[in-house]
Design a protein around this nucleic acid. Structure first.
Lengths: 329, 329
DNA sequence: ATGAAAGCGCTAACAG
DNA sequence: CTGTTAGCGCTTTCAT
């Protein structure tokens, strides 16, 4: 029925080993033999069975990518960076979506491991203890991008959220803002704590103190941004910092609906900088993460672990930029 | 090193066959034996090797999903529908991104087949002849969602684009519009031809004739929409129909920048209805495809093929709705 | 209800 | 440079 390496060997009058060699680019094959085999492969339209190959070689040239929400532009931007580098190193990626569910995240990981992927990268997500422990005893190389876990035991790629937020906050404070709200989205406690600390540190340096009641929680979609506006308004915030662009846009629209001037009455800044920022009016100010690069560097890092190369820095910090567009003064 | 089914068998003092049986829920195992085996599995933290399993059983309980552009909300909405149903039927999905490249599309398909997936679904995309022929001789069940190929040889899930566009066009014509531009995005010739025909048919029914010069081409991103505006303007279009929401938003913003009134001077309608439509001001009118459902029905259809159930209709047409929001009169 | 044994399609020593 | 031969870890008859 399906043509196997054995069929090719028979037709080409060589052994399976030889066919295997030409398949894998092993140089120890006489050019004419190689040609003969290649011809047969073409003629029979033979395609190696990756499953059998994986079982025999214990390598699948496949890496798993675990994404919290595939329909979030933040993650898909990261994924593109990953994909490009993976392709460059001849790895295929298989993406699985966890819908922000830590249980699914764990299941996905286990499922990838049972599929014998050569490595796994987590994008965002909030790895729980079980997952962390599964990772440890799976012995599969793992890299996490755009988030981090507290012990920094896992290789990761990030920007310095603390500094980024501190810089932005300082600027807000300097230009007269005084009530800076931060909308947590429960991405990763670790990461959001860094951000909180950044804000507080900026207040401290300015000789002021941050108002904890301005730390609010909201989902990461547009509607959540709209919904949380009332609360923002109650707290008389003059600046709103959000994790996701969508949330920021929701806030923005609600503010405009309430006849607030942007950025005079209220300023908005997000921490994502996805394509969305330029697709809304007014264009959204944002901390520009190098999303593509985070993904790309993450995958590169993973290839090093998969090839057992030595890595000098497991926790990579990439530079950020703050793009002040029309939603900030 | 890694624990195998053999280790479990030894520890539980049964044969591997029995372990395999409990793994696969085979009823022919004495309850106490089953318990004994399960305990050992737990104790050793044994996880079956999916690759070995796939090789032996010739089934991988995995379906491949081929997406033209993972960062396009249109496709990710489809993907969620797919994913949910796949999970329901205990299939895992592995998503691969082709970046709108027909070559990559083909490679992805071949790669999935070599990985022995049980089925493949294509989202959008423009399957070329080679890919079509690969599909045919792969003997792997395939379903295509949100696009179609001319011979309708492949199972598919769609809406009736012809009717949808015709209905919209008729309404535009009835309410005084006269120069309806359509921006092709070279998704699928087949599909875009349906749309063209729908427009022409509406014109015909209204006793008018469509102006072919109003059929333009643009990319499917925001910037493409902005870029094509000049051309639209030259052709004095009073309605612009786009495939993607992003393109529509680009057109919208350009129009507003040129002080055109929306919808008085120019109306805009897209054919996607992703989350974006409500995230812009004014909210974008759109032909509302049941994106989630298209994905869900597509996966359900695929499960039927994979289980060799009989299907009564291979080319499913789902209902659409036209959401007239603020960018149309 | 359980075990023995033969593969699944390929890679990887090892020999020659 | 090429062939032989063991497996890889699991499923699946076929016996018992």
């Amino acid at each position: 029925m399906t043509v196997t390496i054995y069929d090719v060997a028979r037709e080409a009058k060589v052994s399976m080993a030889t066919v295997s060699r030409v398949l894998n680019g092993n140089p120890n094959v006489k050019p004419e033999t190689r040609k003969k085999v290649k011809d047969v492969i073409e003629r029979l339209n033979y395609r190696p069975n990756a499953v059998a190959r994986g079982l025999a070689s214990k390598k699948t040239t496949t890496v798993g990518v675990i994404i919290p929400d595939i329909s979030n532009l933040y993650y898909s931007a990261l994924a593109r960076g990953l994909d490009d580098i993976a392709e460059m190193y001849n790895y295929q990626t298989i993406i699985t979506n966890t819908e922000n569910d830590p249980e699914k995240e764990r299941d996905s990981f286990l499922s990838l491991v049972s599929k014998q992927v050569d490595g796994v990268v987590f994008l965002g997500g909030a790895l729980n203890e079980e997952t962390l422990s599964d990772i440890k005893d799976s012995h599969v190389p793992v890299v996490i991008c755009g988030t981090s876990e507290k012990d920094k035991n896992l290789p990761s790629v990030n920007i310095d959220y603390f500094e980024a937020i501190k810089e932005a906050t300082t600027k807000f404070l300097d230009t007269g803002a005084n009530r800076i709200a931060f909308l947590k989205a429960s991405y990763s406690d670790q990461l959001e704590n860094h951000i909180e600390e950044g804000i507080k540190s900026a207040y401290r340096d300015a000789g002021k103190s941050a108002d904890d009641s301005l730390i609010l929680t909201a989902g990461s979609d547009y509607q959540s941004g709209k919904d949380v506006f009332e609360e923002i308004s109650t707290h008389k915030a003059d600046v709103v910092i959000t994790m996701s662009d969508e949330t920021a846009i929701g806030v923005l629209h609600s503010a405009m609906d309430h006849d607030l001037g942007i950025p005079e009455d209220i300023q908005v800044l997000s921490c994502s900088n996805t394509r969305l920022v330029n697709m809304v009016r007014p264009p959204l100010s944002s901390i520009a993460l190098p999303l593509y690069d985070i993904g790309a560097v993450g995958m590169r890092l993973l290839t090093k672990y998969m090839n057992e190369e030595t890595v000098d820095e497991a926790n990579v910090i990439l530079p950020y930029k703050i793009e002040y567009r029309a939603t900030t003064k």
